[in-house]
């Protein structure tokens, strides 16, 4: 939820505040877009028009992401997904 603007604020601070709020709104919009996509993905993969292979690939990608290999932007390797 967007906070109300403090009553006393300099013009510079007001501009910075507005910019920060715009950033927050933009992040919120991006987050909503992502979650909408995620829900549609769950719906489409469950309906599985692309077949079981696509469903399995999606589940595998989730697993890879969740255990660490997919967390690193360098792509990770099979080994560093299972440290120890």
């Amino acid at each position: 939820m967007r906070a109300s603007r403090p009553a006393r604020m300099t013009a510079t601070a007001a501009r910075a505040y507005a910019g920060a709020m715009d950033d927050t709104d933009e992040l919120g919009r991006l987050a909503e877009r992502y979650l909408d996509l995620w829900e549609r993905q769950a719906m489409l993969m469950s309906g599985a028009p692309a077949g079981p292979e696509a469903f399995a690939a999606w589940i595998a990608a989730l697993g890879a992401s969740a255990v660490g290999g997919g967390q690193a932007d360098d792509g990770g390797t099979a080994d560093d997904r299972h440290p120890g």
Partner: peptide, 27 residues
Amino acid sequence: TALAALPAMRTGRLPWADELAADAGAL
């Protein structure tokens, strides 16, 4: 799961359904 998949999504490694690929790429 949405959070877990975020890094893979940002780098384009998440296999989206065909219908969503364009929207996911734009995001």
